[in-house]
Design a protein around this nucleic acid. Structure first.
Lengths: 223, 223
DNA sequence: GCCATTTGTTACCACCCGGTAAGTACTTTA
DNA sequence: TAAAGTACTTACCGGGTGGTAACAAATGGC
């Protein structure tokens, strides 16, 4: 009974699928064919787990076992846990850009361009893909902080540009653009804290209601 | 046999005040007079630290050293780390009720009662007092989850009551009250993720702008 | 068939964290 | 003044985490 070496680490019930891998497909350790685990597969799982459990509370062992590999294997693909997070953030940003590219059109009024932004954003939140939201700078290295902050700045800039465009073309009206942007991001980002029940609302319904609320407010029209 | 005993664990630099106690006054360990540390003082520091660093990333040692006491001393006042959090949540809720009691008046239109709610709420967020927001159920015991969820439910109910009152008296108008409440809480709760710079905006300015945005929206009035 | 590269594995470490046991000093009370 | 409680301290444990060293098996090119 040596307690330094934990023998139980190796033995993992091969029949128990566990709830670890509820999010994405995963089998038991060793069941996966060699070579099917690439960076993108890892980031898919990692994004989901970071989003569901939080970055801190997701251990590398959690991620690895959801992929049916072992923790050190992750270090073949990534250089650190933070590296995984940063790549997830980058991936999320790229997916956002791709999603928005189809529907976006700079000739539309700013108001509509804000709507496009929000619909894509809410979609991706509910797909557990926007790791940026979940990334808390306080756990990151200085270099990581800079990178993460840059992505946040870019996406913030994107929304603010649309808001300004709306102000110019007369489709939107507001005082303080910073507070407005913060408010909008708060509304949608906080979805990551919703309990599972509330998340069952279809993304389209959520973004519809939010967009309505943001544009029209909830004050009764004064007569 | 066992190499698990790490001797270096005990040695800790006693002079290093560190930046742990930037939030509230603290000196080096032992500088504080006996008896000045009571539950309320602990909760004050703990709330701030939970809010600034997050619950997970605030160790009991962090809290203790900010109070110039040792970690086991905390166990004289509280039974566990979660206990501290739960008491902070309760304290925050009570402070909220007290703050709101002065200005609240059920005879006011719902719209104004929502405003009162939000002004108090934003104030207390900026005072780092609403630990409820920072408490992530995923780290809590089942019993803790229930308690925490109850406080959240109560404060949610409070806002929804005000919203419904506004809908009845005609001062507010909206479709889905749940989404509206989620949206509002998202806007204000997300303030806990703002970087320090943005938090310098005076609370009154924040709540004014948020309230304006919530009531009137940012869509230009259609002619 | 052999070798280099890719993709993993086992075994392990140093560190940190929540929590506990047991003892100590100050303060109140009878 | 002595007992009883209050408010701490030192020393320690078990368990978990990110990360590393060293080794092994599958894969593809020659």
């Amino acid at each position: 009974m040596t307690d330094a070496v934990n023998p139980k680490r190796a033995e993992r019930n091969p029949t128990a699928g566990g709830s670890a891998a509820r999010t994405a497909g995963a089998g038991q350790r060793r069941s996966r064919k060699r070579g099917t685990v690439n960076k993108d597969v890892i980031m898919g799982i990692a994004s989901s787990m970071f989003r569901e459990r939080g970055y801190d509370r997701t251990s590398l062992e959690d991620i690895a076992s959801a992929l049916s590999i072992t923790k050190p294997s992750l270090y073949y693909h990534f250089s650190s846990k933070e590296d995984i997070l940063l790549e997830c953030i980058s991936r999320g940003y790229i997916l956002f850009q791709q999603k928005i590219a189809d529907r976006d059109d700079v000739r539309l009024p700013g108001r509509e361009r804000v709507r496009v932004f929000l619909e894509a954003y809410v979609d991706l939140i509910q797909d557990n893909v926007l790791s940026m939201i979940v990334a808390d700078e306080r756990v990151m290295s200085d270099a990581g902080k800079v990178k993460s902050r840059n992505y946040k700045r870019m996406i913030n800039r994107d929304l603010q540009d649309r808001l300004e465009a709306g102000q110019r073309d007369g489709s939107l009206a507001f005082d303080d653009i910073k507070i407005v942007a913060y408010g909008i991001f708060g509304m949608v980002n906080w979805m990551t804290h919703w309990q599972s029940g509330a998340l069952d609302i279809p993304p389209a319904a959520v973004s519809d209601q939010f967009v309505k609320m943001i544009f029209d407010g909830i004050g009764a029209p004064r007569a």
